[in-house]
Design a protein around this nucleic acid. Structure first.
Lengths: 344, 344
DNA sequence: ATTAGCTGCTGATACGCATTAACAGGGTGG
DNA sequence: CCACCCTGTTAATGCGTATCAGCAGCTAAT
């Protein structure tokens, strides 16, 4: 009784046509006032008695939309390694989706493909959703072009370079936030800065580097280590050797191990070496230290992206480019410069 | 070019009929060997050139299945408060779904309803998925009956009492695991036990209480506090006053605050008071203490549930009842009894 | 009396695909 | 030479819904 009841069945029960049933269901529209409450009652009674619910598939088939948002992540969303990265995004998306009355379709990507996930795999189920939010650190540029070229509504979370056209996104202003960090360091007297993080790669890396460079001014880049995830001690050695008084890390993990190494050599942080982390991570890896950094508004990004997506869907708009500010986090690892030269 | 390409378009391009395109796509079936590789090539070329992908909705419409699993949670899945509870389940479900080639549809429930989420709300989208995994601490019994009565495939995560028929589920053996904890306490000499947790409510509460009672034997229930989330100090006072030497908590949070209170009164744990937590929580709340407890195999539960669901879908089986064992966690909060009477 | 307008409903069709009966053309066996 | 079987393809149909043109019966206006 719970399944497989169609409008035809209702129609038979109520002694009307299938079309009438449909009209009763989607009332207030074209046939407003044209169906007398008597008939309406009969139909609704039949619906109540059978527990009928409209088949969303057929509905979508006929109307084209089904109030489902796709969520595509370039990396698996839930494995613990990624959980901290994706969780706030998913939270924001779920919240907004529920508010707006959408369900969420998590696209798991091709099951076979060993390497990177692909949006456009053979049995692409993208179109089941009315539109799609795309998450991930590193997007596939070819796929992005394809998406931009097509008419399928999507919104990226995180700034994206144009790909054959502007990409609709909600990003975080890494450029501005990073620049602000540099300014703070300079205002505390730092003139020789070190940077540990790539100057190329995904947009999030580019932006941090650009913000850093732009705010450098008359200060000096004493050292630039492009590789992340290196050994702590060698890293620390090179930093000290360079004469840098403050280090900017794009990866929290690097900052944690370098800080550990520094402490183990009885170097004070920030006394002897200041540390800034360019971004935020939910769960501060096994460390009590509150790093000077900035907070990426992940939930808000996700909410805004979801809203933009729904707008694209509902109004056939093209979506825009939104940048949200990152809140500076004071922390306790950026201090005034402290060098021999201070006492000259 | 990326959107709205149908089999009809492909057919036109390749100079064949729509039916032929469909046959090429779902080959190896009825028309095996009946389509020459020449035609096949032409069609596949057109498909490649247009980037055509079958519309999953239409597919489902025609065939009845679409390789999508629904996931319904009775509480929002991602909010940080719930994250630790649901994350392992979602992880397990996603993993298995991807392996089996299913996508995931997160059903967000009615947007308007203020209170509890409902599966059967007005615009029930359940049927969009081939089947559904249901998560949550506390199920709606009426809805469960409706599900059991219907022919829609679903599997619950967590043991569920029959509701007009057996409920297919994959649960954790709280009864056995709790009983084992009680046995361990008794083997360490404890004879007066306290229990902080409800004896009624959802199955997970019932089972713990039942396991506790069953293993009590000649030991004594010195105190039973049904309310969880109470104030630490009063709780500790009552426990001490009761003469209990070990206390069992269903909620980690309670254990944490009571342990804190005990330490602040310079009571040793487990020296003066042993503590057992009946269950596991991913993120040990701000505490270094490793509580004696048992590990709920959440990921494995989710994997098994997802497998069972896929079996139900693919073979029209009814699903069964599976209980998984919980691994005891030694921890450091259950010690031998230590009382004046020890030295008699 | 013809037209126009309203009410209350229904028939037909489209949506994109899978499926199947069937057909045209050609070969084979009796 | 007819009956029969292959092979390659197609026309037709159904899935459950939304939508729209339109019909029958009536009243009001011209």
């Amino acid at each position: 009784m719970a399944g497989r009841v169609t409008q035809r069945d209702i129609a038979r029960l109520a002694g009307v046509s299938q079309a009438t049933v449909s009209l009763v269901l989607n009332d207030a529209k074209a046939a407003v006032g044209r169906i007398p409450s008597e008939t309406r009652e009969r139909v609704q009674k039949a619906i109540r008695e059978t527990g009928y619910v409209a088949d969303p598939v057929a509905r979508r088939m006929a109307k084209g939309l089904n109030r489902i948002l796709g969520v595509f992540t370039y990396e698996p969303a839930f494995p613990s390694a990624q959980a901290d990265f994706f969780a706030p995004f998913l939270f924001g998306i779920e919240e907004t989706a529920q508010q707006l009355g959408y369900d969420l379709l998590l696209l798991t990507g091709a099951p076979s493909s060993r390497g990177k996930r692909k949006i456009f795999h053979e049995n692409n189920r993208l179109r089941l959703a009315d539109g799609c939010v795309i998450l991930g650190r590193d997007f596939d540029r070819a796929e992005l072009r394809q998406l931009v070229a097509g008419d399928y509504p999507f919104v990226a979370v995180g700034r994206r370079e144009p790909a054959g056209g502007p990409v609709p996104y909600v990003g975080a202003d890494y450029v501005g936030a990073t620049a602000e960090m540099v300014r703070r360091a300079r205002s505390k007297g730092h003139r020789r800065l070190a940077y540990v993080g790539p100057a190329r790669g995904p947009e999030s890396s580019l932006d941090r580097w650009e913000g850093f460079r732009a705010a450098l001014g008359d200060a000096e880049l004493a050292l630039h280590i492009q590789d992340v995830g290196g050994k702590a001690l060698p890293m620390l050695k090179r930093i000290r050797a360079s004469g840098a008084t403050v280090v900017f890390f794009t990866e929290l993990a690097d900052a944690v191990v370098v800080e550990g190494a520094a402490r183990s050599q009885s170097l004070a942080v920030p006394g002897d070496l200041s540390i800034v982390v360019l971004g935020s991570h939910l769960r501060p890896l096994q460390t009590g230290t509150r790093f000077t950094s900035f907070a990426v508004p992940r939930e808000e990004m996700a909410r805004r992206a979801t809203q933009m997506l729904c707008e694209r869907i509902e109004t056939s708009s093209k979506g825009g480019q939104v940048m949200l500010a990152c809140d500076p986090v004071e922390g306790e690892t950026l201090g005034p410069i402290h060098e021999e030269t201070d006492f000259q």
